[in-house]
C-alpha cells in the first residue's frame, strides 16, 4: 500500500501528493481530472458563493471555461479562495493552476513576479460617486471635497495623484473595508466615494435610492483585470488565453449557449474553426477538437456571462462600457481564430 507521510504524522486529511516532477500543467490537470482555480474570497458579480454554496461570477466563468475546454466538463473545478496577499504565492507554489480573481495586469506582476497575464476579462478603472444633490457633474469640480477611500490600496495612491495633478485639495476619510466606505458615504461622513467603478456600481445598486447618486464620468486609472498563469508553461498559458478568447470570438460571431448546436452547421469558416468542425485548433492546443464548443455550450459567450453576473439586469447593474466588443464601441477584442 501507499503510505502517505502526511496521514501518518498528523493523522488528518492531508494531501501530500508527489506528482511527477516534470509533468506539464495540462498533464497534471488531466491526470487529476480537476482544474484548481484560485479565486477571490468574494467580490460581488465576479466571484462569490451563491445560496447553494456554488461559486458564480464572471471570474468563475473563466475557470469554468478552461475546465470545459480541457476536461470537457465545466463543473470539474476546485475553487481555492485566495486573499489579495497570498494569491501570487498560491500560483507560484503550484497550489493553483491559474488565478482568476480581479487581478490588475501590471508590468511588475507580469514581468517582475514571473507571471503571464493571458487576457483581460474586465476593463475596470477607478471612479467617483457623489450624491446628485451635490450638483457636481465632473471630478474636476471636487476641489475641497471629503473623500472616502480604502487605505493601503492603489485606489488611495491614484486619488492622491489625480488631485495633485489637477491642483485640487481633498480631505480623506480612511476606511478599511468596502462596507465601511458604503456606510460612511451613506451617513454623509464624506461627499465622495471612490473605488473601482464596478464596485461603485455594485454599491449603488444596494442604496435605498440609487437614482439619487451619480458616478462621475472621469475614470482616473486603468485597471485591466484578467486571468494569469505561471511563467514557463507556454502551452498552459495558450490554453487559458484561448479558452477565454473563444468566449469573446463566440460573442463576435453571434454564437451563444442556445444556438451553438445549430451554429455547427454554419458556413462561416471562423465559426467552423471555432467549433472544431474544420481545422485542427484543438489538436494544436493539445485538446480535443470540440474544446471551444464545450466552452460555449457549458459556459456561454462573453456577453452571456457578463449579462448573467454583472449586466444591467443583475443587482450589480453594470453597463458594458469599455467591455463592449470593439465593433460596438468597446475595446474588447480577440485576435482572430485562424
Amino acid at each position: 500500500m501507499k503510505m502517505k507521510v502526511g496521514t501518518l504524522v498528523f493523522g488528518a486529511a492531508i494531501g501530500l501528493t508527489a506528482a511527477a516532477a516534470n509533468a506539464t500543467t495540462l498533464e497534471d490537470v488531466v491526470a487529476r481530472g480537476e482544474l484548481i482555480c484560485g479565486v477571490s474570497t468574494g467580490v460581488a458579480g465576479f466571484a462569490a458563493p451563491d445560496d447553494q454554496g456554488n461559486w458564480s461570477g464572471v471570474d468563475i466563468d473563466v475557470c469554468r471555461a478552461v475546465a470545459a475546454a480541457v476536461l470537457g466538463d465545466a463543473s470539474k473545478v476546485k475553487y481555492v479562495p485566495t486573499t489579495s496577499k497570498e494569491r501570487f504565492t498560491a500560483l507560484q507554489s503550484g497550489e493553483v493552476d491559474m488565478l482568476s480573481r480581479v487581478t490588475t495586469w501590471t508590468f511588475s506582476r507580469d514581468v517582475g513576479l514571473g507571471f503571464e497575464f493571458v487576457g483581460v476579462n474586465y476593463y475596470d478603472g477607478q471612479g467617483f460617486m457623489v450624491p446628485k444633490a451635490l450638483g457636481v457633474t465632473s471630478a474636476l469640480q471636487l476641489d475641497g471635497a471629503t473623500v472616502c477611500v480604502q487605505t493601503g490600496t492603489t485606489t488611495e495612491l491614484n486619488l492622491a495623484d489625480y488631485f495633485r495633478a489637477n491642483n485640487m485639495e481633498y480631505s480623506a476619510v480612511n476606511v478599511e473595508t468596502a462596507d465601511e466606505s458604503r456606510e460612511n458615504y451613506l451617513s454623509g461622513a464624506c461627499d465622495v466615494y471612490t473605488t473601482d467603478s464596478s464596485a461603485l456600481a455594485a454599491a449603488r445598486s444596494t442604496f435605498d435610492d440609487p437614482s439619487a447618486h451619480q458616478i462621475l464620468p472621469e475614470i482616473i486609472s486603468k485597471e485591466p483585470l484578467g486571468p494569469l498563469v505561471r511563467h514557463g508553461d507556454a502551452q498552459w498559458g495558450d490554453i487559458v488565453r484561448w479558452s477565454f478568447n473563444a468566449m469573446v470570438v463566440a460573442e463576435e460571431k453571434g454564437v451563444t449557449q442556445g444556438n451553438v448546436d445549430d451554429m455547427k452547421g454554419s458556413n462561416d469558416p471562423e465559426i467552423q474553426r471555432l467549433l472544431g468542425t474544420d481545422g485542427d485548433m484543438g489538436k494544436q492546443l493539445g485538446l480535443s477538437a470540440d474544446w471551444a464548443y464545450q466552452v460555449i455550450s457549458q459556459v456561454g459567450n462573453y456577453g452571456e456571462s457578463f449579462e448573467r453576473h454583472i449586466g444591467v439586469n443583475t443587482p450589480i447593474g453594470l453597463e458594458r462600457g469599455l467591455n463592449q466588443l470593439w465593433t460596438k464601441g468597446g475595446i474588447l477584442y480577440s485576435p482572430p481564430m485562424r
Partner: peptide, 17 residues
C-alpha cells in the same frame, strides 16, 4: 505563503493542516 515555496515541486501540505 512561505512553506509552499520551500517544499519540493509537486508536494503540498493541506492548507488547513
Amino acid at each position: 505563503n512561505m512553506l509552499p515555496l520551500f517544499f519540493p515541486e509537486g508536494i503540498e501540505l493541506d492548507k488547513l493542516v
